[in-house]
């Protein structure tokens, strides 16, 4: 984060893509926060699901399956009254 704030302090003139390509260090400095967040996500592991959470997620899954069946019944009735 410190590198990112130092970038925000810089007074930079406008550059084009070709010019910036020749300044890889500046690119890395500008994308510092991006890279930090990415590496944090890379190290994430599976979240522990409590029994209550598991029941909720399964319940929502059954809800979707049930509703899809209901939709097909509705379409059938609508098109074959």
């Amino acid at each position: 984060m410190a590198a990112q704030s130092s970038v925000e302090q810089l007074e930079m003139r406008r550059m084009n893509l070709k010019e910036l390509t020749s300044k890889p260090q500046l690119v890395q400095q500008v994308l510092c926060e991006y890279e930090e967040s990415h590496s944090k996500v890379e190290h994430l592991t599976l979240r522990k699901l409590t029994p209550g959470l598991k029941i909720t997620i399964w319940g929502l899954r059954f809800y979707v399956v049930f509703m899809i069946v209901v939709v097909f019944i509705n379409v059938f009735h609508t098109l074959h009254p």
Partner: peptide, 12 residues
């Protein structure tokens, strides 16, 4: 990365 940095520089 360079393209994204270019966009970010404009924001900064």
């Amino acid at each position: 990365e360079t393209v994204r940095a270019l966009d970010r520089l404009e924001v900064i």
